[in-house]
Amino acid sequence: MLTPQAVQKLFETLRQLSDEGCSILYISHKLDEVRDLCQSATVLRNGQVTGETDPRKATSAELARMMVGSDLPEMMVESSELSNAPILSVSNLTLEAESVTGRSLKSISLEAYGGEIVGIAGVSGNGQGELAAAISGERITNAAEDVVLEGRPIGHLDAGKRRDLGLGFVPEERLGRGAVPPYELSENALLTAHRKGMVKHGMANRKKAREFASHVIDKYKVKANGPEAKAHGLSGGNLQKFIVGREIELDPRALLISQPTWGVDVGAAAHVRQTLIDISRSGQAVIVISEELEELFESCDRIYVICHGKLSQSLNRAETDVEDVGLLMTGIGSQTNDSGSTTEGFDYAV
């Protein structure tokens, strides 16, 4: 993962190499980069060549159609009414790293209102994983008040209790964290959706779990051989759709989703993003942690940037651009926030 500035630097180098007579085979799913850099492009889908084109002349939509096989749906982003008080807020959260390779979090504060999508940008390894674990409840924070859901301190609760109170979470690892790989989808439905009446007198109701899994498979267009399919038999995109669907069906007040479209094909990614927009417009708070700036700019209302375990002020999407956010990601950017003050409490070290 590179910042936009680093990508430009890389492209300069690649162009120079090709000018010197070196042939370069560039493999990417990022259509803008391919259009920017390449002179000819071959598109693959399901192990087959589906088209060859000159990317400089083709539009992103044409390339996407070759990749997906159909036109991508247009993103529908309506403006929305925000809730009066934040649904989820993190205040002054400081957390030591769990391992030497981990990242400590330094007095992080953020707020997410109902009706908006809040993005957290950053180069990987700057504390995103730790922040996600602290919000989700996989790690207990030092003080209960560090994380507040609808006015209730939840920092001392485990992930299950936080989910009971209305916090949804989709982790970036689907296999082994969001889902149990050798288990059927119905058994994976039980993982978090057991609170939807699937447990009676301590016994798991497998029939209800199967029905729930079938419902998610139909509603979120998951390609799977029914609720008996094993989680590790699904493609990354389809498993992601299943996990996102499962968490949304729990009807959370706030949903935290980490790397929603990692390894997900363009069609499924568009579907996931549209789903996030839809639930935020129905009054829920959505927090997206992502390394893909395009994705954040496409769907988020506000963006925070995380760098060296510190979080920037919030940036309104309308008042910022990829350049600004990119600089903040490297920790050398100046930043403007809503009130116009700059770089307060921000880490300049590289």
Binding site: E138, D158, A159, F169, V180, L191
Partner: peptide, 10 residues
């Protein structure tokens, strides 16, 4: 089978 999934689920 998946300790991280157990932590994820609480």
């Amino acid at each position: 089978a998946a300790p991280s999934a157990a932590r994820f689920a609480g």
